[in-house]
Design a protein around this nucleic acid. Sequence first.
RNA 1: AGCGAGGUAGCUCAAUUGGUAGAGUGGCCGGCUGUUAACCGGUUGGUUGUGGGUUCGAAGCCCACCCUCGCUGCCA
Length: 468
Amino acid sequence: MRESAAAPELNNPRNLFATPSNHYHQGGRSMPTDIRIENIADYVGQEVTIKGWLYNRTDKGRLQFLQVRDGTGIVQVVAFQKEVAPEVFADIGRLTQESSLIVTGIVRADERAPGVPGGYELSLTGLQIVQIAEEYPITLKEHGIEFLMEHRHLWIRSSRQWAILRIRATIIKAIRDWFDNHGFILMDTPILTPAACEGTTTLFATDYFGTPAYLSQSGQLYNEANIMAFGKVYCFGPTFRAEKSKTRRHIMEFWMVEPEMAYVDLNGCMEVGEQLVSYIVQQVLEKRGPELQLIERDTSKLERIVPPFPRISYDQAVEMINELGHDQGVSIEWGDDFGAPQETLLSEHFEKPVFVHHYPTAVKAFYMAQEPDRPETCKSVDLLAPEGYGEIIGGGERSPDIEFLEEQIRRHNLPRAAYEWYLDLRRYGSVPHSGFGLGVERTVAWICGLHHIRETIPFPRLLGRIYP
RNA sequence: AGCGAGGUAGCUCAAUUGGUAGAGUGGCCGGCUGUUAACCGGUUGGUUGUGGGUUCGAAGCCCACCCUCGCUGCCA
């Protein structure tokens, strides 16, 4: 279903730019309708107005093709010299790349017309130039990544980046819809925090009126408090990691959704994960077909993403890695956490995301519940995306046992006082519970089939880059 | 943070052994009635990252510094 089919454009005041005196519209007809390009199929045969920017222009002499984008799509506008007013045709010749303009024309279905969605074009009847853009730095030719990152504020206009960020928005909407429709309630957790949640990674420090504070690296501990009040909750916000990671999988500021559920065990946790991830992928397939086509994503690989997902134990994963990785020199010893090569190897082996559960207790966070029969393993789970994309979910069942947690806090050298409220949760009605974190940018990278995470967010914060 | 690669026209890159710094693209001018990053002709375009050194001569060789990219570790 399209969001606003033929509904009037509520957020698009008709006379924002256009005025009768400088509008080339030929009199006699009714006023053209303001539309957005994503809805163009509903207006075949009608005269419409589109407000946007010039993406590209092909000058054929007495015939001009304009590629106009309006934020919702790209449409081809066609103008034959003999069919438009002389002053309009002269104005077309002045248009530079990214000039802002308001075009009016008759919508026509034509298979030759490129664009998003393609197949429709506008026969120009009127043109109003809003601004002639200065020489635009980003051409349709190839550019290096350094140049593009330096111009990220303009790069997001390019069709590929635009499509990726539209898919990102759909992924985020799917996440929120799924939780809202499955008994979860949104609980925002603080971004300014007094101490490390897990104490294992580097935090961005800031000053909180004279006392040190840190930017949140997870809302989980607060969510453990929230579930005792609300049952099933999720938080969704930015997360900050000051690790000096410089890989295609890392950014310093990323978005993470973290569900937490009372009275749910490790298996229930995996069930929620596979239902959520499947829903996200299917929503993107349904809502963002043209964008997926534009970025040339192989959608057959996404169509397979339906429950159930394979589940293997860490023990089995270690065996698989040592078998599969034999030729490539990839191996692992029981007790070690997976590195990038091990994760890639595993995730390339499955067509669907794969759960790996029961990691060694020693490599996971202090709050993970131990497996009673095998305390050297814990009720943790990661979800590895296919095609070599690696970890997109990390989580598991939390320990409800106050004595175990007190010992873990000591063992990890965490400041006991900062966790006193957390220990309270085990004093007053402690219950089995679990949860996980899903990294939005890694999910976008996988669904879009991207080489690097920097293209999954409008303005990525990378090691050594905070501009623009 | 460790290892590796690189910085030349607005952009993407080339320049043999140290010997006149070039192409494509963009911009500009002209041509073309179905282009898909259009095409064709002409034209414009340089403090070779910065500072020092070697040399008759340095984009290239030496020293120092700055910046970027890739991989790894850490993790989502």
